[in-house]
């Protein structure tokens, strides 16, 4: 079965992770623009970050046979620094229509402040103008309220719910998101977000229509094989293969494919992996390393199936 991981912060991950993801069946990843664990203090570092998402990181993924897409946006945490936020908002349109950019995101609320609200709304208007899907980060704190509010604001700005993915759902938010016609994404992320046993229960209870599974793997303790592991656990638990395929592959393609930037042929008819390739003169190879793709890597594997 082929998988898409539609939320993965790959700049924080190693080449081992790319190899393991490819071996587990991941054919494409979407890397949302977010913060780096500590705040950027000037727009220049933001520009270079966005540039790396559409540049070197895409190249790096391709070296392991994975197609890399991204979403562009000013995240909610850094929206609280008004000077930075204003400067970054100038950058967003310069990146939003580049090849491989499949949405404006991840945007939304963190602490639900006035500034977060301002830049969330401005970016929703931009997404509407550019006819791009939106990836919404729902807050960890005051989640239920913040999730409802995010959807209220989308409706207020006239967005079509079929163009909006509400991410980081849980048992308390899923029903409202689905009832209101939005895509409901779930991040299978140890300890703080969803576990995959719980995810299988969600699939059993709600079905897979408009449900999307992702890993949200980043610089924290997270699991780049979360989509593949959840799929296997769901199959082992008796969820129909068609449902698993919807949640772990097809719905992400359907939602983000609306950008016109992501299509199945991208990976069904791929360029062969050639690690001799260069990106602006740079290779992923170091120290005269032979450019061969290794056999399945054993540091990461599909053992230890349960994520909680």
């Amino acid at each position: 079965m082929m998988f898409i991981d539609p939320h993965a912060h790959m700049i924080s991950r190693t080449t081992d992770d790319y190899e393991a993801m490819a071996a587990s069946g991941v054919v494409a990843v979407i890397e949302p623009a977010f913060w780096l664990g500590q705040p950027r203090t000037n727009a220049g570092s933001y520009l270079d970050y966005l540039s790396s998402l559409v540049g070197f990181e895409r190249f790096r993924a391709g070296q392991f046979g994975i197609r890399h897409y991204c979403t562009i946006g000013l995240n909610s945490k850094e929206a609280n620094n008004e000077g930075l936020a204003e400067a970054v908002m100038e950058l967003i349109p310069r990146f939003a229509l580049k090849e491989g950019v499949v949405a404006i995101g991840e945007i939304g609320y963190d602490e639900q402040t006035v500034l977060e609200d301002k830049y969330f709304r401005l970016q929703l208007e931009l997404a509407k103008e550019l006819a791009l899907p939106v990836m919404i980060h729902t807050p960890h704190r005051d989640k239920k309220n913040g999730t409802s509010r995010s959807m209220d604001v989308c409706m207020e700005h006239g967005l079509d719910p079929r163009m909006v993915v509400i991410d980081h759902n849980n048992e308390e938010t899923v029903r409202e998101v689905l009832d209101r016609g939005f895509w409901a994404a779930f991040s299978i992320y140890p300890s703080t977000k969803m576990g995959n046993v719980r995810m299988v229960e969600i699939l059993r209870q709600y079905g897979a229509k408009r449900v999307i599974v992702d890993s949200a793997c980043d610089w924290g303790i997270s699991e780049p094989l979360a989509v593949a592991k959840t799929a296997r656990l769901a199959l082992d638990s008796g969820i129909a293969a068609t449902e698993v395929e919807l949640a772990c592959y097809r719905n992400a393609l359907d939602a983000y494919g609306r950008s016109g930037q992501m299509m199945e042929s991208d990976w069904l008819n791929p360029m062969p992996i050639d690690q001799r390739a260069l990106f602006e003169g740079n290779s992923i190879l170091r120290g005269g390393r032979e450019p061969v793709v290794q056999e399945q890597c054993d540091r990461r594997s599909m053992d230890n199936l349960i994520i909680d």
Partner: peptide
């Protein structure tokens, strides 16, 4: 908010 958190 804390009660919502507990339910979650």
């Amino acid at each position: 908010i804390l009660r919502d958190f507990a339910h979650e």
